[in-house]
């Protein structure tokens, strides 16, 4: 696509949540059997994957496995095997309150800031270079009404705000940015990256193309060593983009930008939004935080009632 003029502000498509029913089932069981009235925050894991359909964005998905195991004999460590290309791990935290009043009384801006601070700290300490998934850290507040099997919840995807905001220089499909030789090599390199269980779920990376059009995908921490003497090389920052919109990058780019700006103080950078089945797009461009998920365009929490599948009396009736 044609990019805007040099000065348009880069706009990001917000991340969206999708919660599997199994998550609520396990949360209920944990609340009843393990947590009790203890409402201290619990680390959880979300999953996402690069956009794989041209019509819909991918979401941050919570599954039963996002929560610690509810059976006491199994260790509460995540027993999910890594390396599933459709499941990039994203660390998150859940604040599950005991009352609906408690849910509404939570200091939302404060909680968001606290999570954003963790991201910022990981950027500053360099931890985000080692484990880039911490850049997409998220926050979930919830109230599980176990008498009615309904769940009030609200996601936040904290994003560090650049000041001044990043501007978009140009936005093009990768096929127009790369020579056909480069595109072929980039494609092969990505296939390898995505098919290896070691790297399939690493959501942020570098795309290095040497002067012979040979592409390699590297970890973020290899940025310094990638500044080789090879004059003709190209270096792009890439990420798995869950967004499907042709003219906007997805949310994860925000904190990558924050990292790039604060760590290397680059003024203009090439980005590669990695999406499957639609090819990629490129961006050039040159902390406060935002990120509460909108619900139908409004800033309100969501409620899901699972009485149909959790209420024993209803289950008994439907089983009769």
């Amino acid at each position: 696509m044609e990019g805007g003029s040099g000065k348009s502000i880069l706009q990001f498509a917000p991340f969206q949540s999708s919660v599997d029913e199994g998550f609520w089932h396990r949360l209920s069981s944990l609340k009843l059997n393990k947590f009790g009235v203890d409402d201290s925050p619990v680390p959880i894991t979300g999953f996402y994957a690069p956009c794989s359909q041209s019509q819909v964005s991918n979401h941050l998905t919570l599954l039963a496995e996002s929560l610690p195991s509810d059976s006491s004999e199994e260790s509460s460590v995540l027993a999910v095997s890594r390396g599933n290309r459709n499941r990039c791990f994203v660390p998150g935290i859940i604040y599950n309150t005991n009352t609906v009043e408690g849910f509404h009384a939570l200091d939302k801006q404060g909680l968001l800031k606290a999570e954003a601070q963790k991201i910022w700290k990981d950027i500053c300490s360099g931890k985000a270079l080692e484990d880039s998934s911490v850049l997409s850290r998220f926050l979930l507040i919830s109230f599980a009404d176990l008498k009615k099997w309904s769940f009030h919840y609200w996601f936040a995807f904290p994003a560090l705000v650049l000041d001044p905001p990043a501007t978009l220089v140009n936005l093009r499909p990768a096929s127009q940015c790369f020579s056909s030789e480069e595109a072929e090599s980039v494609s092969a390199a990505f296939n390898e990256w995505r098919n290896s269980s070691l790297t399939a779920d690493v959501p942020f990376f570098l795309v290095h193309i040497d002067s012979n059009s040979h592409a390699t995908i590297k970890h973020l921490k290899d940025w310094e060593t990638s500044q080789s003497a090879d004059d003709g090389h190209k270096l792009l920052f890439g990420f798995y983009d869950p967004c499907h919109l042709p003219n906007h990058p997805g949310w994860p780019l925000r904190n990558l930008l924050a990292l790039v700006c604060s760590r290397w103080d680059l003024k203009s950078v090439h980005f590669l939004c990695y999406r499957e089945s639609r090819g990629w797009r490129n961006h050039g461009h040159v902390p406060n935080a935002v990120g509460w998920e909108l619900n139908k365009g409004r800033r309100v929490p969501r409620i899901i009632s699972l009485a149909k599948s959790m209420d024993p009396t209803r289950l008994a009736i439907s089983a009769a």
Partner: peptide, 17 residues
């Protein structure tokens, strides 16, 4: 419960559907 409280928004960089 429309949250008119202290939530910060940043329409400049949000893509509002």
């Amino acid at each position: 419960f429309e949250e008119a409280d202290n939530i910060e928004i940043d329409p400049g960089t949000y893509l509002i559907a």
